[in-house]
Design a protein around this nucleic acid. Structure first.
Length: 530
RNA sequence: GCGCCCGUAGCUCAGUUGGAUAGAGCAUCUGCCUUCUAAGCAGAGGGUCGCAAGUUCGAAUCUUGCCGGGCGCGCCA
C-alpha cells in the first residue's frame, strides 16, 4: 500500500489545504477494519466538519468529487458511508503493479532509510547466575526491536550493561568459595542469602584444579560466558558490553560527579552527598554517595548514561523490568542535569513472564524455571515467537504445552504451515521464474484479498516501528496466514491455464517474500517441510 | 498512602493519538480430503467491553470516582 498511500495522502492534503485552508494531522488515510470498506478510508470530512462546524456529509461529497478527478486510474471507486467516511477502492491494475514492484525489490519494497544512530540497552542482568525467563523476554523483545529499527535504516548498537561492581558479585564469589571448601572436604559456612543452584557448584569444581586465581574475576567471567551462551541459544548477540567496574576505574563516575558539582546540583546532608533531582521533576532528591563513603548504584548509572550520551547517539532506548519503573524519572533528571534533552532517552518497561504448564517443568522443586530450561524445552524459534505474543506492557503467560503442541491450535505452526505449503507447490511446479507480465491475469477476489494483505505489511511495520511493539508483526502474521490458507483452499495455483498459473505463482512468491521478511525480523527460521 | 500495569465471549487474548455491525483462536455443534500438505477450509451458537457518572454527532478507547487482580515505592542493586 506504500505507493498509493503516499500518493493519495499527498493529494488529499493538497485538496484540504487549497479548498479549506487547513492542515489536518496525519494520517489522512487508514486501513479500514473491514474489507468491505475498501483499501483505504479517510475521516478527513468528519475532522474538517468538527473544526469548521459544518455538515460532514457535504464536505465528504465535495472531497470525493475532487479525489475522483485526481485519482483516475488509481481508484476503482470512491464511496461515502455514514456519517462521512470516504472509502477508497484501489484498482486491480494498480494492485498488480504494486505486486510486481514488490517482486522486483523484495524486502527493500518495505524499507525506509531513516539513518539514526540508536543505542539499545537491554537484559543487563547482574552477572550472578543464569538468566531468568523474564530476562529471556527482554532479550527477545530487544533483539526484535533492534531488527525493526535496522530494517528502517537505523544504525543500532545492542548493548549489555554488566553490573559487576555491587555486593552481589562478592556474595557469589563467597558462595563459590564455600562450595570449594565443601568439595575439598574442609569445614565451611555458607554465606547468608548466598547463591544456590548447580552452577555455583560447577564453578567451584572448575576452580579446584587451578592455582592462584582471583576468585571474583574468575567467577564473573564464568557467569558472563554462561549468559552469552544462553543469549546465543536464542540467536541473540550484543555488539557492546559495558562493565560498571571499568567505568568506575576509568574515572567516569568521578567525572560525572565533578560535572554536576560544578553546576551546583550536588549538596551535602547528613554526611551523604545528594543530587537535587527534584529540580528536574523527580519526586525527591537522590543519594549519590552514602555516609559510609560508598557510591550508590544510581551514581554509576549516571556515569553510564553520560558515557552513552558522549558517544553521540540520536536516541537511547532502555528495556527495563517493571521493578525499575520508579527509576525512570531520576535517570531522566540526571540526563537533563548533564545538559541533554530528557526525550533522548526512551524507557520501555517489559512486564513479567509466568509459565503455564501441566506438570513437567513445575515438578522441579526449589529452583525457579530458568531461560535455559525453557529454551531446552521448546527450542529457540518457538521461544522467540511466544515471547512476542503480548504487548510489552502486558503480563505474558507462556503456555508451554500450547507452544509444544504440533497442531493448528498453535499459531506458530499455523504460520509455518504457510511456508511449507508454498514450498510444496514450488517443488511440484519445478523450475520457476517470476514474470511480471503475467500479473495482469489475477482476476479473482481471493487473489486480491491476499494481495491487499501483503501490501498492508507496510502499515504493520510502521506501527511496530513507531510504538516499538513487536507484537504487531505477530498479529500481522496470524492474519496473513489465515488469508493465505483461505486462498489456498479455494484456488489452486497449478492449473492448466498457464496465464492464471503463472499469475498465481507470482502472488505466491510475493507472499513468500513478505512471510520470510516478517519471520526474519522476528528471528524465526521459516520451515520448508512439516 | 503514592505511582505503574491489567480487568473485553466459558478459556487465552486482539481492538486505546475517540469512528463504521466490538474481533480472533481454543472449547462446543454441523459440513468439506480421487485434485498443489485436512497441521487446513466453510458455517452455527456464545458479549450489561469490571461498576457508575461526565465530555460529543459518536466512547471498549478520553475525564472523574469506585470495585477487583498484579507489581513497585531504600543512604539495595
Amino acid at each position: 500500500m506504500r505507493g498509493f498511500y503516499q500518493k493519495v495522502s499527498q493529494i488529499l492534503e493538497d485538496i484540504v489545504r487549497e479548498k479549506y485552508g487547513l492542515e489536518l494531522e496525519p494520517p489522512l488515510w487508514e486501513v479500514p477494519s473491514r474489507q468491505e470498506f475498501g483499501d483505504l478510508s479517510s475521516m478527513a470530512a468528519m475532522k474538517l466538519a468538527s473544526r469548521l462546524k459544518r455538515d460532514p456529509l457535504g464536505i465528504a461529497i465535495d472531497l470525493k468529487s475532487q479525489l475522483e478527478k485526481k485519482l483516475k486510474g488509481v481508484a476503482e471507486k470512491i464511496e461515502i458511508v455514514k456519517p462521512a467516511f470516504i472509502n477508497l477502492f484501489i484498482s486491480h491494475k494498480e494492485l498488480s503493479q504494486a505486486m510486481n514492484q514488490l517482486l522486483k525489490e523484495k524486502d527493500d519494497f518495505f524499507r525506509h532509510s531513516i539513518k539514526k544512530k540508536v543505542l539499545l540497552e537491554f537484559v543487563s542482568a547482574n552477572p550472578t547466575g543464569p538468566l531468568s525467563i523474564a530476562h529471556g523476554r527482554q532479550a527477545v523483545v530487544g533483539d526484535v526491536i533492534a531488527n525493526i529499527l535496522e530494517f528502517f535504516g537505523n544504525k543500532v548498537t545492542r548493548e549489555y550493561y554488566i553490573n559487576d561492581a555491587g555486593r552481589q558479585i562478592e556474595l557469589l564469589a563467597a558462595s563459590v568459595a564455600a562450595r570449594i571448601k565443601e568439595l575439598k572436604g574442609e569445614e565451611f559456612s555458607f554465606p547468608q542469602n548466598g547463591y544456590q543452584g548447580q552452577y555455583v557448584k560447577d564453578i567451584a569444581k572448575e576452580c579446584l584444579g587451578k592455582k592462584k586465581i582471583k576468585l571474583d574475576k574468575f567467577v564473573e567471567s564464568h557467569v558472563l560466558k554462561l549468559i552469552k551462551n544462553e543469549l546465543a541459544s536464542l540467536g541473540i548477540k550484543f555488539e557492546s558490553w559495558i562493565s560498571q567496574t571499568k567505568l568506575i576505574q576509568e574515572g567516569e563516575v568521578d567525572r560525572a560527579i565533578a560535572f554536576m558539582k560544578k553546576k551546583e546540583l550536588i549538596y551535602d546532608d547528613g554526611g551523604a552527598l545528594w543530587f537535587s533531582s527534584t529540580k528536574f521533576g523527580d519526586d525527591k532528591d537522590r543519594v549519590i554517595k552514602k555516609s559510609d563513603g560508598e557510591l550508590t548504584y544510581f551514581t554509576s548509572d549516571i556515569a553510564y548514561h553520560r558515557d552513552k550520551l558522549k558517544r553521540k547517539y540520536n536516541q537511547l532506548i532502555n528495556l527495563w523490568g517493571p521493578d525499575h519503573h520508579g527509576y525512570i524519572e531520576r535517570v531522566k533528571a540526571a540526563i537533563e542535569a548533564l545538559g541533554y534533552r530528557r526525550q533522548i532517552l526512551k524507557v520501555l518497561i517489559i512486564q513479567l513472564v509466568s509459565i503455564k504448564t501441566k506438570e513437567r517443568m513445575s515438578r522441579r522443586k526449589g529452583t525457579a524455571i530458568l531461560l535455559s530450561d525453557l529454551v531446552n524445552e521448546v527450542g529457540p524459534d518457538t521461544a522467540r515467537f511466544y515471547y512476542l505474543v503480548r504487548r510489552n506492557s502486558s503480563h505474558l503467560e507462556f503456555d508451554i504445552d500450547l507452544a509444544k503442541e504440533v497442531s493448528f491450535n498453535n499459531p506458530l505452526y499455523y504460520v509455518q504451515y504457510c511456508c511449507a505449503r508454498i514450498n510444496s507447490i514450488y517443488e511440484k511446479a519445478g523450475k520457476r521464474r517470476f514474470d511480471p507480465a503475467f500479473s495482469k491475469f489475477l482476476k479473482e477476489p481471493e487473489e486480491f484479498m491476499l494481495l491487499r494483505v501483503l501490501l498492508q505489511f507496510f502499515h504493520c511495520l510502521e506501527k511496530a516501528y513507531y510504538t516499538l511493539e513487536p507484537v504487531f508483526i505477530i498479529e500481522y502474521l496470524k492474519n496473513l496466514a489465515a488469508i493465505f490458507h483461505k486462498f489456498y483452499e479455494r484456488k489452486r495455483v497449478l492449473v492448466d491455464d498457464k496465464n492464471v498459473s503463472c499469475a498465481r505463482l507470482n502472488l505466491l512468491e510475493a507472499t513468500r517474500i513478505v512471510l520470510y521478511c516478517a519471520l526474519n525480523l522476528l528471528g524465526i527460521k521459516p520451515v520448508k517441510k512439516m
